[in-house]
Amino acid sequence: MANRYLHNVQGLFDTIAPNYDRMNTIISLGTHRHWRRQTMAQIHLQPTDRALDLCCGTGDWTIAIAQKLTAPDAVIGLDFSAPMLRLAQQKVNDANVSDQVWLRRGNAMHLPFKTASFDLVTIGFGLRNLPDKPQALAEIYRVLKPGGQLVCLETSQPDQPLIRPVWQWYFTKVVPWFGRLFAHQYQEYSYLQETTRHFVSYRQLVALFQTAGFTGVHYQRFNFGAAAAHFGTKPLTEADHD
């Protein structure tokens, strides 16, 4: 069932890849760039660190991380959509970070990396599309080095009584209409707004991080809660987690 789900979602992202960046800007009214900048400001990297950017899409976050690192293949960008990765590769080349970036096709729930390989794992706007989120978080925990950090930037759900109805109207009515108007992809953006509406709350995501073993879990919300960045650290020892 999970494999069929992933195949369907992969096909969706293959389809929307050519319009992905433009639609992100339209749907978020350009604020997704601000969310990523604010999130990056809280990530402290050493030039020789190794990072993994999961569900990397067209590579914007991959590139932002690579610009802070110096080692060859310091950042691996992983995504299951070949068309997304082709767009990401062009961006990487244009940004002159091709030495630092290695783009790979793969499944975020079954990572093809050794245990304790990375100082940082990021996942931007991808966790909500994975059918088994605890499995994905367990894999992220496994490949992080002790003391390494997970950072997840994701759409979220406002909880203020005056804001939430407007948010629900925007995602249920306006986002699919934008998909039809600007990308001729109504069904695809109807699905994406559903994953946004039904994704766990920011508090539930904290609990998922903690259940996976992460400590020091905290978050920052954006646009009245329309998005949130969550941070968690893999303990230096298992005793720290216990």
Rank of each mutant, 00 (worst) to 15 (best):
T115V: 08
V151F: 15
H34R: 15
A17S: 07
Q100S: 04
L162P: 03
E238H: 14
M109S: 11
Q204A: 13
N24P: 06
Y191N: 07
T70A: 14
A108Q: 04
T15S: 04
V175R: 12
Y191C: 14
R37N: 14
M23L: 11
D240H: 01
F199T: 03
Q157A: 14
L111P: 02
A95W: 06
L6K: 11
R36S: 07
Y5C: 10
L137A: 00
S156G: 03
Q204E: 12
P235A: 13
Q187I: 15
T172V: 05
R128F: 06
P47M: 15
T115S: 09
D53C: 01
P158Y: 05
F118H: 08
G59A: 13
A41G: 12
Y170S: 14
A226P: 02
P47G: 13
L111E: 12
F125G: 14
A71W: 04
Y141W: 08
N223C: 05
H110Y: 09
A71C: 03
N24D: 09
R105K: 07
A64S: 08
W102Y: 10
D49N: 12
A41I: 05
K173L: 04
L236K: 09
V101E: 03
W177I: 10
L85Y: 15
G216R: 01
L52Q: 06
T172Q: 15
D242H: 07
Q46R: 11
V97N: 11
A239Y: 04
I63G: 08
W169P: 01
S81G: 03
D99N: 04
T62N: 09
G77Q: 07
F214G: 00
A88W: 03
L29W: 09
N107P: 13
K133I: 08
F118K: 02
H7W: 06
R33T: 02
R104K: 10
A17Q: 08
A116I: 05
F113H: 05
G11W: 03
P18C: 05
Y141C: 05
T58K: 00
F118Y: 05
A51T: 02
V9R: 00
Q42S: 13
R37G: 01
E238L: 15
L205I: 05
T115Y: 09
F224A: 10
N19Y: 02
A95F: 03
A41K: 15
D73V: 01
A66G: 09
F13L: 03
D21Y: 06
I163Y: 10
W169T: 11
Q46K: 12
L130P: 00
V166P: 02
T25H: 04
I163H: 15
T196F: 02
R142V: 02
R36Q: 13
G213T: 04
F214Y: 13
Q185H: 05
L120G: 06
R142D: 00
L205T: 03
Q187A: 13
P146D: 03
R128I: 09
S98W: 11
T58G: 06
S81T: 03
F125S: 12
N129I: 02
T195H: 01
A136F: 10
N96K: 11
Q38G: 07
D53A: 01
Q149P: 10
I140A: 05
L69F: 14
R37P: 12
L52F: 08
A226T: 08
Q160T: 07
G216H: 05
F222S: 14
T25G: 14
P158K: 03
K68T: 00
N223Y: 02
N96D: 02
T195W: 01
A183N: 13
C56D: 09
F13P: 12
E194Q: 06
R128C: 10
